[in-house]
Nucleic acid binder design. Structure first.
Lengths: 341, 341
DNA sequence: TCACATCTCGGAAGCGCTCCCATCTCGCTC
DNA sequence: GAGCGAGATGGGAGCGCTTCCGAGATGTGA
């Protein structure tokens, strides 16, 4: 067995309590004994056992993270934000993905029981009200991109409606009057909010909303391709399309190009998310910054607040999205520069 | 405090030992009492505390994962493989990134001490021999993409030399006789191995290796752009270039296109890694499948072997890379189809 | 010199769980 | 009917740590 606090204590001729005190700086210890203990601990290669600490402190300094997928560029960016903030706060992350049913979720939560101080959940397919009771009562949780009604959990998301509005409005500002949309997966919250933003922008501009210019996608590339072709088959066809995420925007652009339409020359396209690759696409994608990294860092910040401070109340926070103008929309590309890669 | 095994025991009128027995199925229990215990546990919402279990079992069912970055498309793919395999084996993952110095590493390992059964490390910038002694002695570790000499740790990587050879050989097979290379970060192992593969392929084909066709990159996009321009400035310029990863290949292609060269018409380009976006690039990237997901799943498999079985010896395993022929090299694109997104 | 505050430290319980050991009860065999 | 093995269960120590409580030792002021 490895070297424990008792080993160090015996070797240094003190009690475990004293060793604990110097390692946690929790009570005054004579400078000489402290020095002595530190020295023998170092010599023996003692490292406090985090599990034992957790058990006795009832704090694990770990946050659990449950995501639906690990594929694509979106989730990794969120994880990056989580990791960054966790490290800044000296917290660890326990990661698990693929939770598509309440049963999956329950199992994952079971195996995390007792080893996390907080939980960040992103479960776009599931209704919070449905799984709310599965969540451990004594562990604060924050939901990412979830419905805010029907439950009492903290929610963090971006303002999707505003994002949809910004994207569409930008197209309007470019002089387009026939603007189509490819929506996301109708099972998710974002889809409806972004669509609502689109409708609002058209309304504000006194432009008609034609229902055959609203085509359903599912956030995947292929549905962007199909969506673009469906839109171009209407008559008259739109001169601009708002794709509800970047993947669909990229699919749409490739399909348009393949069919001989120039982007943005014949059709302007704007996406949503601002994936890392958006600026490297050709044409560089005009899109809405969905603040994926911030979503991660803010989630941790919320949890820190809940676990450290006394603030135990529910929080609902929406981050403001913003427009990234590049080439795919035909506007003068005044890119915000980002580090390569 | 939450409901513990003792609560359940008292409520059901048995001892904690018996409750433990039914939950772990570790000894025969009377069917009636078992039923009874299960029922009251369910009623009370009892979930075993994983931390306490870990402490008493000295097993955490958790693997630690230390990566250098979480950016880009490479690491997320590896994580995906890790997560997938971990879930299959009913294990949890503890994730942490940004370990660029032995000191960083030591801190991260300290906070994981006692909470992991195994460790997967990817630290391309660090020499295993240097940090070997920082690793906990009683926790099996597997290094990803690391030097195999000078230490006794398990290593899992792909055969980079073979990959470099395959890529270059493919270019040769296309009839190219003037083939340049943009290397990766010279501080990493992969870089030298891939370069060695390039040299070997040229040698086998009896083609001269000109040192001004070997330009140094750093695995980032921008160095691919710069590298391509450097190569095209030689005389005669190469008609094909092997970029040591996909990011540099993409950078190179964009630079070539921007300068008026057609890809693959004027210059053929092959990359390395087969990032998820490689097939969606235009032109679709011919590249080497670096088996990122497999790297993750195999790493977990190795750890399971070490923690479950009796096999405690060092393992060195190299995965075989393979060529993905698409459009950027000028060959007939006979793509292996992958699911979109 | 004595009362008392302050500093330093050890003993031991307790965090929630597992598991060894002991006890008790049946049911069976000879 | 005595002896015995198997099955069911409880008691309690122990995993490595923290922390409360209290005991010595030392210092201070009147």
């Amino acid at each position: 067995m490895a070297v424990t606090i008792r080993t160090v204590a015996e070797e240094a001729g003190v009690s475990p309590a004293t060793v604990s005190r110097v390692f946690n700086d929790t009570a005054p210890v004579d400078p000489d004994t402290r020095e002595d203990i530190l020295e023998t601990a170092d010599r023996l290669g003692y490292v406090p056992n985090a599990t034992a600490r957790s058990l006795s402190l009832d704090r694990t300094h770990t946050f659990g993270v449950l995501l639906p997928f690990l594929t694509g560029e979106y989730f990794p960016e969120v994880i990056r934000g989580l990791d960054q903030a966790a490290r800044d706060h000296n917290r660890l992350l326990m990661l698990s993905s693929s939770h598509h049913s309440p049963e999956d979720l329950r199992r994952a939560l079971g195996s995390m029981n007792g080893r996390i101080d907080g939980l960040v959940l992103m479960l776009p397919q599931l209704d919070p009200a449905a799984y709310r009771d599965h969540l451990p009562a004594d562990v604060p949780a924050v939901l990412l991109n979830a419905e805010t009604e029907g439950h009492d959990l903290s929610v963090l998301s971006i303002d999707n409606r505003e994002g949809g509005r910004l994207a569409t409005r930008h197209l309007v500002d470019q002089g387009h009057e026939r603007i189509g949309i490819i929506t996301g997966d109708p099972a998710t919250q974002e889809t409806h909010e972004r669509l609502a933003g689109y409708r609002a922008a058209l309304r504000n501009a006194n432009l008609p909303t034609r229902e055959d210019w609203v085509v359903e996608g599912d956030f995947h590339r292929a549905s962007g391709e199909a969506g673009a072709r469906t839109l171009l088959a209407t008559s008259p066809p739109p001169t601009a399309v708002f794709a509800s995420n970047d993947y669909m925007a990229m699919g749409a652009i490739r399909a348009l190009q393949a069919d001989g339409h120039a982007v943005p020359g014949d059709v302007a396209v704007v996406g949503f998310d601002d994936l890392p690759n958006a600026e490297h696409f050709s044409p560089a994608l005009t899109t809405i910054d969905a603040r994926m990294v911030d979503l991660g860092t803010e989630a941790i910040a919320l949890l820190m607040e809940r676990t450290e401070g006394e603030a135990c109340s529910r929080r609902v926070r929406r981050l403001a999205p913003s427009l990234r103008v590049r080439s795919s929309c035909g506007a003068a590309p005044c890119d915000q520069i980002r580090p390569t890669r």
